[in-house]
């Protein structure tokens, strides 16, 4: 046992170094900097924060509303094409976001398959915050659906059957038995989807464009600031790291303390 520990020490050091050192180096560059507070108050930072917050929450909400029934369906019923649907849902996780960007342009762009019709009725999606939400949903919803499906699969169906025998309707059973039992998986899936949406870059810059206060989310602002204002890029990066780490860590603690500890 002890030998195994020593053997795994070097890989551990390497991995922690690779993951932690670059993140740490951002803080080492930012903290001694003068005028951090002034930078935080710049519109490029505040607007990006506001926009990222709103769009990532919207796309997570979208994933919850549409993803939950789909995940339940995939977990519980066997039907023709389930494997196909499963693969389709996994696809955005492996596709480069730039592919998502091109695909969304070809669909919702002004001359896209749907965009042409939307244009006729006066609905324009590209270059609006809606486009940002669409891009984020495309790449992040699969993270939630996958976790939720696994969560529903782990729920003991006998407990649902007991609820039926006690006279609960299927809908009531779903909300009062299945959801609470699958909750840890649903929560961590939603957090993963949210984190992925917050970090979305490639699909957003291609499909939604890059305009401060409208479509320039935090990752886009970091990219733009790298060439003009390195401090702003560093401050925004540091903020993203802090926020993402706290949320992931917080959820972990929450699940650990709850009776669902085993899931965390």
């Amino acid at each position: 046992m002890e030998r195994l520990f020593w053997l795994s020490l070097l890989p551990l050091v390497l991995l922690v170094g690779l993951l932690a050192l670059p993140l740490l180096s951002i803080f080492l560059r930012v903290l001694p900097h003068d005028g951090i507070w002034e930078t935080v108050q710049q519109p490029i930072v505040t607007e990006a924060l506001r926009l990222s917050f709103l769009t990532s929450l919207s796309s997570t909400l979208f994933a919850l509303l549409c993803g939950t029934p789909v995940a339940y369906l995939l977990a519980r019923s066997r039907f023709r094409g389930a494997a196909l649907l499963d693969t389709l849902i996994d696809l955005p996780m492996v596709l480069p976001p730039t592919v998502a960007g091109v695909a969304l342009l070809m669909t919702f762009g002004r001359r896209g398959i749907l965009g042409t019709w939307l244009d006729v009725v006066g609905v324009h999606i590209s270059f609006t915050p809606v486009a940002v939400i669409l891009a984020q949903s495309f790449v992040s919803a699969p993270f939630y659906i996958r976790a939720a499906r696994a969560g529903f699969q782990s729920v003991d169906q006998d407990l649902e059957r007991v609820a039926y025998t006690l006279g609960h309707s299927p809908l009531r059973t779903f909300f009062q038995v299945t959801i609470p039992l699958a909750f840890p998986a649903l929560l961590s899936g939603a957090v993963m989807a949210w984190a992925r949406a917050l970090g979305e870059f490639g699909a957003t810059i291609m499909f939604a464009g890059n305009l401060m206060g409208r479509t320039q989310t935090m990752p886009l602002a970091i990219y733009a600031a790298m060439e003009s204002d390195l401090t702003a890029a560093l401050v925004l990066s540091a903020m993203l790291i802090v926020v993402s780490f706290s949320v992931l860590f917080g959820v972990r603690l929450l699940l650990h303390r709850s009776p669902y500890g085993a899931y965390a």
């Binding site: 270059f127 305009l211 401060m212 990219y223």
Partner: peptide, 15 residues
Amino acid sequence: NVVSEEDNVKQVVAK
């Protein structure tokens, strides 16, 4: 009227 600010001029051409 500006809807997007591109990182280089060729992206303006593409849009």
